[in-house]
Design a protein around this nucleic acid. Structure first.
Lengths: 244, 244
DNA sequence: GCCTGAATTTCGACT
DNA sequence: AGTCGAAGTTCAGGC
């Protein structure tokens, strides 16, 4: 990994065209050749970047414009033109280009990091689904689980259950309930209700938080909404597991 | 901005729980207190991070465990326990926590960057929409623009146009055409067709690339698909502007 | 301010 | 390898 702090301007051409005016920034060149351009703010997203696989070519201004002209003949370059080194980064597959022109290099260090063991995660949607499946009775007395990831032609339904009356319920689980989740559940319900062995199937939209628009659309389509409390579900689960 | 290269382990608790085992990484502390943990690979996303607004507290091991015990009495610490400095970063609003334990510091530099003028973009969906609106006749002879961002109760339709027969066409534009774009257009069409002054309104799904599943769904609902060539549209636009 | 939709999204799982 | 859905998404624009 190479870390450079420099006054630089940046141009990107690929999916879109973008330009960064001259300013002091952090440039990171990773082992795979990828380049990140960071400012001293924003969030984790760089101002500009090139993803791997790509190749970096460094060009020194002196090597390019080493003419025999008398320097006194040259007009003073504009600040934007007064670079000393240029990085040309080209994406190996898409051909996207990133050009960094360095004007003044304030820091330049390289360091060997080695491969990273990687991040271990816990507590996302898959976990919510497992917890709700294991505690399906929190949705109502005498509810029972049919199965998780119930397969259909257009994809698996998160949870299929039966309510106290034995009616089938298709449950769509999201961390955050938004309108597209309701659309997804609607497609499942359309399909499931064509199956005479299952029909009538009603829908339930379950999420840690559901946006008002999603609630309105769900209600309009006769889909119930329920807010999940991850900590509470985990608490129930822990309490149950302690019984054994 | 502070740049630290160090052997470290990281723990995050917030929306989820995550852990990074001991390894050598780059740590970036930005002016707003935000912290990024980068490895020498992956893409622009850090392995872990804390977004602003947040506060960083640095704790030295020596200050915490400065006991009077005879050092020979202490059992040799496990590698994971053998840290020399700890960073506690707490998000000001959500309370999310990031803990970085530094074991060996290989680099530690600070640099003043100042505020960044920011990225200038070109060629995103808004631009596509403007270009297509200005060149609506590329969709068919004698087509005409009704208006961009045609307002409805559930949001604005990207473009409303009339075809050669005077029939109304609602156009949904995406950079990449996917299934939710078709769903969106379907909702607009349902609504627009309830308006006797407009009905019948047909739909057109326009994107630089449309996924097969989206095409199938669009076709199934009688929605036409069209692939937009951004460079060609821009070319037409440039050519037209040169006429004046 | 919240809310909504796009993103050079990136990332992971599954087909 | 392609496709699809989620993300501690982040980001920009509208109300």
């Amino acid at each position: 990994m190479r870390l450079v702090v420099a006054q630089c301007s940046v141009d990107y051409t690929g999916r879109l065209t973008a330009h960064l005016p001259l300013a002091t920034r952090l440039l990171i060149v990773k082992a795979d050749g990828s380049v990140l351009v960071h400012s001293d703010g924003g969030s984790y997203k760089p101002l500009n970047w090139m993803s791997p696989p790509c190749q970096l070519k460094v060009v020194d201004r002196a090597d390019v414009e080493d003419t025999a002209d008398d320097p006194t003949d040259d007009p003073a370059p504009l600040p934007e033109e007064d670079w000393v080194q240029q990085w040309d980064v080209v994406h190996a597959k898409t051909g996207d280009r990133l050009r960094v022109r360095l004007h003044e290099i304030l820091e330049d260090t390289s360091v060997e990091l080695g491969i990273d063991p990687g991040l271990q995660k816990d507590g996302v949607e898959a976990h919510l689904q497992a917890l709700l499946a294991q505690n399906i009775e929190t949705l109502g007395t005498d509810w029972s689980l049919v199965r998780r990831e119930y397969p259909t032609a257009i994809g698996p339904v998160d949870i299929l259950a039966r309510d106290a009356d034995g009616a089938t319920v298709a449950i769509e689980i999201k961390r955050r309930g938004e309108i597209d989740g309701v659309e997804q559940l609607t497609r499942y319900l359309d399909l499931l209700n064509r199956d005479p062995l299952l029909a009538p199937v009603r829908g339930m939209f379950a999420a840690q938080a559901i946006k008002p628009q999603a609630k309105v659309l769900a209600h309009d389509r006769g889909i119930d909404c329920v807010t999940l409390d991850y900590d509470a579900l985990r608490g129930i689960d822990d309490a149950e597991s302690r019984l054994f």
